[in-house]
Write a protein that binds this DNA or RNA. Structure first.
Length: 354
DNA sequence: GATGCGTGGTT
DNA sequence: TAACCAAGCAT
């Protein structure tokens, strides 16, 4: 087993030196990693693809290039800048963590996995990844890529998530003492480029000779996963309350779904197609002949669009419709706004007032 | 350990 | 195209 261990890390690091991806947040060989950029990229990449993160990372570091600037940032600006990336608790925790770094750590990012783990938004994976990549600490870095690679290397047949403890132990055995950050990033490059979920490119893989799943002939069979539950269907109403050339926006509650985000007013999510519950004004609501479908992780939503003109009854702000893209709306509401604007524009052409 | 939490890319 | 999935975390 020791021979297999050293063979894996040696072959992987050799492969990494030749094939490593060049990414905006990744230090080139010989460069010193910027802990802020490493941390920010790791958080952005949680459950999010490299392709989606690339442009958002560039815009973010241009605006908030370090802990101090982010700690001093306006909450509304930060949430708007995160709009469209999803899992908005990540953005709320970024600010909390930046403030903690400034207030409790004298402006310097903690350098050990254990200290990093205490910051909001840094869980087992991210704390280990930052400790290894930014500070060179030997840490066992296990994300979905590593789970897949390790489950195949050792032919771990237990379905996820029950296999996680065994995968972690196995990952620990192959993690080298030196170049821990490169090793972690190499595992992720391997997982995303070669050891993919479907049709892994085993003939290009530097770990082929040590891979039990390859030897068994069906590496794509692993890791096994527990059966998914069907996502329930829910219904809701989005209210487009217009005043002149502005529309009413509200701020969602700080926790929960789309927490802390600017939004269009909505009714409750219900199991049946809803009525005009929780309308933000006593307007003469008209239902548009379109519905918005939006899938969340845990349920599907079908939304009715109600448009009206009137004065608002609750807290919020009147936002220029022409400048709605600057409001930082979550994708769900951006889709709804686009549908309303398209629909009413079409009606204007045929001479109907909205 | 299970559940809540988004969205865009890929197949 | 519908389904699957992603550099997970908090509770």
């Amino acid at each position: 087993m020791d021979a297999k261990r050293s063979s894996i890390s040696k072959n992987l690091l050799t492969w990494y030196d030749a094939h490593r991806r060049v990414l905006p947040w990744r230090a080139l060989p010989g460069e010193v990693p910027d802990p802020y950029r490493v941390w920010l990229s790791e958080v952005m990449l949680q459950q999010t693809t490299v392709a989606a993160v690339r442009p958002r990372f560039a815009a973010w570091v241009a605006r908030w290039p370090d802990f101090a600037s982010l700690a001093a940032a306006d909450d509304a600006d930060v949430m708007a800048a995160w709009a469209g990336l999803g899992y908005y608790a990540r953005a709320r925790n970024l600010v909390k963590a930046a403030k903690a770094v400034v207030a409790d750590h004298d402006g310097a990012f903690p350098r050990t996995e254990a200290q990093l783990r205490t910051l909001p938004g840094l869980g087992a994976y991210t704390a280990a990844a930052v400790a290894a990549i930014a500070f060179g600490e030997r840490a066992v870095v296990v994300d979905a890529n590593v789970e897949r690679v390790v489950a195949r290397l050792f032919a771990i047949d237990t379905p996820l998530p029950a296999a996680r403890p065994a995968i972690r132990v196995a990952a620990d055995t192959i993690t080298p003492d030196a170049r821990a950050g490169d090793f972690a990033q190499a595992m992720m490059d391997l997982g995303s480029g070669l050891c993919t979920v479907r049709a892994p490119k085993c003939l290009l893989c530097p770990l082929r000779e040590d891979c039990a799943a390859f030897a068994e002939g069906q590496p794509e069979r692993l890791p096994r996963k527990a059966a998914k539950r069907v996502r329930p269907q829910k219904y809701g109403t989005i209210f487009w309350l217009r005043r002149g050339d502005t529309v009413r926006l509200v701020r969602r509650p700080p926790k929960g779904l789309l927490g802390g985000m600017r939004a269009l007013p909505t009714g409750p999510w219900a199991t049946e197609p809803p009525a005009l519950t929780d309308a933000p004004a006593a307007a003469d609501w008209r239902i548009l002949p379109v519905t918005i479908r939006h899938g969340f992780t845990h349920f599907d939503l079908e939304l009715t669009l109600a448009v009206g003109v009137g004065e608002a009854q609750e807290d919020g702000e009147w936002w220029p419709i022409a400048d709605l893209s600057a409001a930082g709306l979550p994708t769900l509401f951006a889709k709804a706004a686009e549908a309303v604007i398209e629909s009413t524009a079409a009606e204007a052409v045929i001479g109907r007032d909205v």
